[in-house]
Design a protein around this nucleic acid. Structure first.
Length: 197
DNA sequence: AACCCTCGCAACCGCCAGTAC
DNA sequence: GGTACTGGCGGTTGCGAGGGT
């Protein structure tokens, strides 16, 4: 049988040093990604393979876009989250240069709070029935999420500033863990999902 | 100046599906 | 066919920075 990916004894943990980063970068430039189990030893790193993978994927990869999220990126995250839920890797896959960890962190630290302040429940993207912040939200919510009859856009009316897009092409190619909504499985409160059939 | 609190982010942990043995 | 390992994912934690008192 194979050996475990790493023995926890004798491995560094916590923040990466510049030297460790450089060793990892140099090794991957020479040998490419993959085989994370054997990489630490081969690269001279006292790290778990998993830790190396994470460091590379989330921080060292040359194609990573760093810095603030643009408004359209934020918009897209909100929309994708409304469709996919907390499937950060899928969401990040649609934002070039962004990692799932970054998207997840940005959601939890910025967007989530922003939606709450707008009176929107970040879990289901519906307006709160009763909001301490927006006392009038209860009356307006019944209009918003039950009467979204705009079939050209797949999101609730409170996301109206956003551009339209479709997931259809990827679903056709590979994606069976994101089954297309059907009249059987769709949420009746969200009629717009029918667009993806 | 010192202390406390909050926030953002990097990194870890545990779980799971796929797959090698 | 069963077991163990790998790679990937989402949830969570912990630390450092910055702001407030």
């Amino acid at each position: 049988m194979r050996k475990p990916c790493c023995d926890k004894e004798g491995t560094n943990k916590g923040a990466w040093s510049k030297q460790e980063d450089q060793k990892l970068i140099d090794y991957i430039h020479l040998h490419g990604e993959g085989c994370w189990r054997s990489l630490p030893k081969a690269a001279g790193l006292h790290r778990c393979g998993k830790s190396c993978r994470l460091r590379w994927i989330n921080y060292l990869r040359p194609d990573i876009k760093r810095g603030n999220f643009a408004p359209d990126e934020e918009d897209l995250i909100i929309k994708l989250h409304a469709l996919l839920g907390n499937r950060w890797s899928l969401i990040a896959g649609r934002l070039p240069g962004r990692t799932d960890n970054e998207v997840k962190n940005y959601w939890n630290s910025h967007i989530r709070r922003k939606l709450i302040n707008m009176g929107i429940d970040p879990n289901n993207h519906k307006l709160y029935q009763t909001s301490p912040l927006l006392p009038h939200a209860a009356s307006s919510s019944s209009h918003h999420h039950h009467l979204n009859l705009d079939l050209t856009i797949a999101f609730p009316a409170h996301y109206s500033s956003s551009p339209t897009f479709t997931l259809a092409e990827e679903d056709d190619n590979n994606n069976n863990d994101n089954p297309k909504p059907t009249s059987e499985n769709m949420d009746e409160s969200n009629p717009t999902l029918l667009l993806f059939q």
